[in-house]
Design a protein around this nucleic acid. Structure first.
Lengths: 132, 132
DNA sequence: TCATAATTGCAACTTTGTTGCAAAAGTATC
DNA sequence: GATACTTTTGCAACAAAGTTGCAATTATGA
């Protein structure tokens, strides 16, 4: 799906910044931080605009937030027919975050009365490239 | 074990701030943020001292860090014979973080060449009290 | 095209955490 | 207990990440 169609599908108006931001996320092989997005938006777009756009995309369900560390939150475009609850791998050497294959997560035996909305699993370690 | 003994066991000198900080964490039923710790340390202890003490305790293996959200990191005292890799539950209403029973975590089928060091699972939702 | 509504940029501010340095408190030895 | 030495603490200043209000710019629909 084209960035323009994704915006239309979620009832968002089409601006050049939003279009570019979706494009960057669509082409990325790993989750990106707001700073990495800022660096890829060539013409210097204001930090505030990027924060606001990310928050809007998150609220509308276009992207998925992955909390890696206290100083690092990354984002990924949500693709059709893909759950967001799968685990993520964070390489502590090269700092990249990739999605892991959708292994069935264990249904934790929660105490009575608890209700689950989302599950966020970060597996920390070193990736294939960094282990060579 | 007394706070003083915990300090001695890890080769740390005994100061009133360290003793109190361990006491606060030992008595807490949930994980605490550095701000929550600051508020419980009655006499106004400097923020910097708390940050430094937390980092020291973490490095020495006295406490366990749980990254809940980008703006919220909480800490728990590590108790004997207890693993730190169990999942944590974060209530999005009351913001409390509690440890979940130690369900066996799934051995995700990682791509070849990946090496795991730690696993961090945050389950978001609403807790028993907030669901009433 | 034009009016209206939404988006963007700027400045200022908040929160969270870090660093360097001097003062205060702890530790070990006598 | 007094002394010397090391560690810890507090203060000031700084840095990164994110938020808010407001004015200027850009999109949208008639």
């Amino acid at each position: 799906m084209k960035p323009e169609d994704i915006l239309a599908k979620h009832g968002l108006s089409r601006t050049s910044i939003r279009t570019k931001l979706i494009q960057i996320l669509a082409e990325a092989h790993e989750a990106l931080s707001s700073k990495e997005i800022e660096q890829q938006l060539d013409d210097n777009v204001d930090r505030v605009t990027i924060y606001r756009t990310i928050k809007l995309f998150e609220d509308k369900g276009l992207i998925h937030k992955i909390v890696v560390d206290e100083q690092s939150t990354k984002y990924r475009l949500i693709r059709e027919n893909k759950s967001t609850d799968h685990p993520h791998f964070h390489c502590i050497k090269c700092d990249k975050v990739v999605c892991l294959p959708d292994t069935p997560l264990p249904c934790c035996d929660l105490p009575q009365g608890f209700r689950v909305s989302t599950q966020n699993t970060i597996i920390e370690g070193t990736c294939q490239k960094c282990n060579k």
